[in-house]
Amino acid sequence: MIKVLFFAHLQEEIGRGEMELDNADIPVRNLKSYLQEKYNLSRMDQVMVAINEEYAVDDDEIKDGDVVAFIPPVSGG
């Protein structure tokens, strides 16, 4: 199981801030496209992914137990 977190506009498009999925042992790229298709998400090309609170790239592998966060462009400050 992995825990997936969503923020800002993604959270509103999906309708929830987090979910648990069985999709372990796949690269970030695959989870991204799976969710994009399933929830018909817009603007995913600009969205970053963090695994266990550290920025990841599309090739990084997601392991069982990971917390994967989808991070839209940030706008703090």
């Binding site: 923020f7 509103e12 963090a50 940030v74 703090g76």
Partner: peptide, 24 residues
């Protein structure tokens, strides 16, 4: 650096609507 790497998002509520801001 805060505006580049810190995962914080701002949602603007205007007179005519609202939106999450992608960047500054």
């Amino acid at each position: 650096r805060i505006k580049q790497i810190v995962p914080i998002w701002k949602k603007e509520h205007w007179e005519d609507g609202e939106t999450w801001i992608g960047d500054q």
